[in-house]
Design a protein around this nucleic acid. Structure first.
Length: 720
DNA sequence: AAAACATACATTTTT
DNA sequence: TGTATGTTTT
């Protein structure tokens, strides 16, 4: 390994890099050069005689994996090291050991849209009402169970109350449906591999022998399944290196368990722990604020933020009248920065919820400030892309019913709902897959002659497409697009069709890139890879546009100038959920992540009124603002309320001027008939409302049966 | 099959 | 208030 490079590292970085055997925990604060340490560590391992082939580095996003691959490659001969996400690793393992895992290797990967179709089906099959058992809730619950490695059988045994028993039924049926279709959802990928490793010692032995050194990045975001999987893999040799920052754990809601990193030393008693506390990213003012903020969390490991930079930077807070004024002020300040020759790519605006981008976009457009909204979905969710992929999926896995149903009448070929239902029923009664039933459509008595012909024609089309599906994917995709009739259906449909064609050609280009990069391209492999990709992977800071994104999307990025908007109680921290202490701490970490993205300047703002779901509401400043240890805030917050002079001045939209004076807003809020929630009495309906100003009395009939008259100012009611 | 209409629902989001 | 989805109509 390069001596000069080693010399550049701080002593703690060097310690982490040069540690060789046994468990290692790297607690890396923001801006501490963590990625560099990991990549250097890979190089150092190779240097000490470890074959790259025996190294496995796991990240959370494809983007992070790609970046790590490149940086590792730049340092030396690390080619051959396995660097990928947990999910990609699992797909590979499941393909290799399909039989041991009890699945077929040509499984489809079901994304959330596919999942929700299957859950709906499962709910229906269990004879349940979709309104009492919303599929989305069920899916969420199932996902949580899978993340905890509780499979359908295990859950059935422990399900006791009514809801759990119902859920258990749905869960069981859902797994059956997936199995029938040879599909695995994202959680299954992890769960199957974790179980495989824990139950099959031969497979586990082989894999841990292959991956002699395990590195896991963002360990604070591992869920229980990932934790168990990693542990099983590393148990034979103990060469596990976990890196992460408990203070940046912001994915509890999707199963991340911060205890994994907090208890690492319990799991691996000989673990060496290295703290990376120097921060090379931010100016001292920002780090002081961040430190003061995060120190309020109790559930964490004490870790300092030591500024390395010595240049000047600032943290400022500004209050605005409403979200439009706030957005306008941000756009104006961004514009000012741009005119000072700050590259637009060095500016970012963060917010708590996606919906907040609207006001910002309007303001940026109005002021002609170039921006881009960084979002997570888009490309692979487009209709035309999903359509073409559905064709390919059916070719690779004929049992994939979700995909088959998608294309059976796309483009329209006169196969309607009724016909499909009849074929489905035929399939069920004869124990066939839908695809098999389709091939025997002429034997379905209920289907009319015309429909029968169309079904047979479609079945023949699939057979024809399936004839030649080996080798490179791009030509295949092109052929399918043409011969399926999809191409024809987009032609002559104006601008939308044109866009669709362009998207398809982008997909085909991507497939061609895959063909080139892969030694043995195959449709199956391609589909399984693509399912694990998202659009955030495509985001690259361009120098021409300021970036607008949620705080969650900001993780891992850094900018010279960072704006965080909406610092209001209920928004940041967000009020949703049970609001327990853990949740508040996570919100604080989220804010901490946002704050520590800034290199030079941090601009915080809040609005005194905000329109939430069409209602213009008074806000309260976020408690987090007071935890930053700044001295200017209190003064700012005491700006005069309801100051009429605050109106006007920044090209506000006219409707604002005619809004009612906010003091009146309490009046209609609890009109008779209004559903309300009380802290101790629960849900109820307002029967009577006596307006006596501050002493207004509301009479409420609660769901518990009792009726109460309460003083409005003490009742703390929320509208439902 | 498309358009019009109605209804439910509204953090965060990767894989 | 806005959207996404489902249902009914033409």
């Amino acid at each position: 390994m390069d001596e000069a490079l080693l010399a550049q590292l701080t002593s703690s970085q060097r310690k982490a890099v040069s540690h060789r055997d046994g468990p290692l925990l790297v607690l890396a604060g923001p801006g501490s050069g963590k990625t560099r340490v990991i990549t250097c560590r890979i190089a150092a391992l190779v240097d000490s005689g470890v074959r790259p082939y025996n190294i496995c580095a796991i990240t959370f996003t494809n983007k992070a994996a790609e970046e790590m691959r490149q940086r590792a490659a730049a340092l030396g001969p690390s080619g051959g090291a396995h660097i990928s996400t947990f999910h990609s690793l699992c797909v590979r393992i499941l393909r290799r050991y399909a039989e041991a895992a009890g699945i077929h290797s040509n499984f489809s990967i079901y994304d959330s849209a596919d999942q929700s179709k299957c859950v709906k089906q499962a709910v229906k099959d269990c004879g349940l009402d979709g309104t009492n058992f919303p599929p989305a809730r069920m899916l969420d619950a199932i996902s949580t169970l899978k993340n905890k490695l509780i499979d359908a059988e295990a859950f059935q045994e422990r399900a006791e109350d009514f809801f759990s028993r119902t859920l258990s039924q749905v869960y069981t049926r859902y797994q059956q449906i997936l199995a029938e279709r040879n599909g695995l959802d994202f959680d299954d990928l992890l769960m199957k591999v974790a179980f495989l490793l824990e139950t099959d010692s031969a497979v586990c032995g082989e894999l841990s022998n292959r991956f002699k050194f395990l590195l896991i990045d963002e360990y604070q975001d591992t869920n229980h399944a990932q934790y168990r999987l990693a542990k099983a893999l590393a148990l034979p040799h103990g060469n596990i290196c976990a890196t992460g920052d408990p203070d940046q754990s912001i994915y509890r809601w999707r199963g991340a368990d911060i205890r994994n990193i907090l208890a690492f030393e319990k799991d691996w008693p000989e673990a060496v722990v290295v703290k990376l506390e120097e921060n090379f990213r931010s100016t001292a003012a920002i780090l002081r604020a961040a430190d003061s903020l995060i120190a309020r969390n109790t559930n964490r490991k004490q870790k300092a933020l030591v500024a390395v930079r010595t240049d000047e930077g600032k943290v400022c807070v500004e209050g605005h009248e409403d979200e439009a004024a706030e957005a306008d002020a941000v756009a104006r300040q961004v514009d000012a920065l741009l005119s000072q020759k700050v590259p637009a790519g060095q500016i970012a605006v963060f917010y708590r919820v996606n919906a907040m981008s609207r006001a910002l976009e309007e303001a940026f457009v109005r002021r002609r400030v170039p921006y881009q909204v960084v979002r997570g979905v888009e490309f692979y969710n487009r209709k035309e892309i999903r359509d073409l992929l559905a064709y390919l999926k059916v070719l690779a896995n004929p049992a994939d019913e979700v995909a088959l149903l998608r294309i059976i009448n796309t483009p329209t070929r006169g196969i309607g709902k009724v016909t499909v239902d009849r074929v489905k029923a035929f399939a069920v009664s004869h124990g066939l897959t839908l695809s098999q039933a389709l091939a025997r459509a002429d034997q379905v008595p209920e289907v009319s002659g015309a429909a029968r012909t169309k079904l047979m024609a479609f079945s023949c089309l699939l057979d024809k497409l399936r004839r030649d599906i080996v080798g490179p994917v791009a030509p295949l995709a092109e052929r399918v697009f043409r011969e399926s009739g999809l191409e024809q259906s987009f032609k002559g449909t104006g601008q939308d069709g044109q866009d669709a064609l362009e998207n398809i050609s982008e997909l085909i280009n991507a497939a061609a890139a895959y063909d080139q990069q892969t030694t043995e391209p195959s449709l199956l492999d391609y589909l399984q890879q693509i399912a694990l990709f998202s659009d955030t992977d495509a985001y690259e800071a361009t120098s021409e546009r300021a970036a607008l994104m949620t705080l969650h999307a900001a993780k891992g990025l850094e900018f010279d100038h960072v704006f965080i908007i909406g610092l209001e109680d209920g928004l940041l921290p967000h009020e949703r959920g049970n609001g327990d202490g853990d949740e508040l701490e996570e919100e604080r970490r989220l804010f901490f992540v946002g704050v520590t993205r800034a290199r030079i300047n941090l601009y915080l703002s809040y609005a005194r009124y905000r329109t939430v779901r069409g209602q213009f509401l008074r806000t309260v400043a976020s408690p987090f603002l007071f935890e930053l240890g700044l001295d200017s805030i209190t003064q700012k917050d005491e700006e005069p309320e309801d100051d009429e002079d605050a109106f006007g001045g920044y090209g506000r939209r006219p409707r604002l001027a005619s809004r009612p004076v906010p003091a009146k807003q309490a009046e209609p809020e609890f009109a008779p008939g209004q559903l309300v929630r009380h802290k101790t009495f629960g849900l109820g309906r307002v029967r009577k409302y006596a307006d006596m100003g501050a002493n207004s009395v509301v009479t409420i009939q609660f769901n518990t049966g009792q009726t109460k008259s309460l003083l409005l100012q003490y009742a703390h009611l929320t509208r439902v």
